[in-house]
Write a protein that binds this DNA or RNA. Sequence first.
RNA 1: GCGCAGGUGGCGGAGCGGUCAAUCGCACUUGACUGUAAAUCAAGCGCCCUUGUGGCUACGCAGGUUCGAAUCCUGCCCUGCGCA
Length: 310
Amino acid sequence: MSRPLTKNHIKSRIIAILGPTASGKSALAVCLGKQFNGEIISADSRQVYRGMDLGTGKITKQEMTGVPHHMLDVVSPKTVFDVARYQRMAHKAIKDILKRGKLPIVCGGTGLYIKAIVENPAYPEIKPDWKLRAHLSRLGGTSELFAMLKKLDPARAKMIDRHNPRRLVRAIEIIKHRVTSTWESNSQVMDPLYDTLLIGVEKSPEELKRTIFKRLRERIKKGMIAEVKKLHAQGVSWKRMAEIGLEYKYVALYLQGKLTKKELVETLNTKIWQYARRQMTWFRKTKGIAWIATPKQAEKLAQNFMRGVF
RNA sequence: GCGCAGGUGGCGGAGCGGUCAAUCGCACUUGACUGUAAAUCAAGCGCCCUUGUGGCUACGCAGGUUCGAAUCCUGCCCUGCGCA
């Protein structure tokens, strides 16, 4: 994969809007999109899936009010999407938007995906090897995986979270497919392609909790349960739903009779809140975010940014 | 009223004489994150003290037995089920 040279020319400006779930990012993005002749690139790891709408809080055609959106409905929920794929597709979309002289506005709550396009880390060119992954997961516990990695790639083993099967499996996958080099020779290279304004939507915990609960009830009323039922009828397994998480996971449990309606609402509500907190701990360490409390503040920031004033 | 079962940390639920501030799950708090990221994983979680093979208060309430009790005995209060 070749990387554009960025050193000797001025980088294109883009805006990125982030924040925890239910903080009101989408509406703000559309608002800025209109004002600055922009197009939205979603940075949401679940909104990429076709048919997952209500459960992911995907923006509707009406709500877009003419502002084009990208990276929505790009893949079937039966296939597993990933950051590297997201990175490639999003870059392509951004390039295209810029070529047309419009402003790309990245918007979403998946911190990793935002990082993928803003900081632009180079991911190793090793695709998921599902056969190997299945084999490794059948192997036994994490201690076994860790021992294996330690033998194959001591440098990586030193850094890794030895209890995390996902990380362990991927690390083994990388080293197995790369005979010569080691982890250290492959450390992540960051190469930002754009000059990015990072806007974080700030919400107090109390307000966030309120909005999450309110939004959850609305989603149920709008037919979220039927949506999950329909996806299942179309062949999305319960197991896959559990992997997708949150609304899909818990509604699936409800549809299987493993939760009552009341339990569904209660646990889902707390799980979404826990997710919002996880998002916040990710964003907290992200450098350079301008946290705003009102759309007005965001507009102001965007204006200055577009004029090149800081 | 009688019989049986039971009252343990925010909740559920172990423990049934010592190694119990009390297994475990949930919730809560903090954090990690190099192609599954709404996923996956870690730490903390009675109170006090910076610390520790530290101090204090705790297993419904009040007493008792014992070197020692969440665990045994007595009384009381409360809850569930059964019989009246």
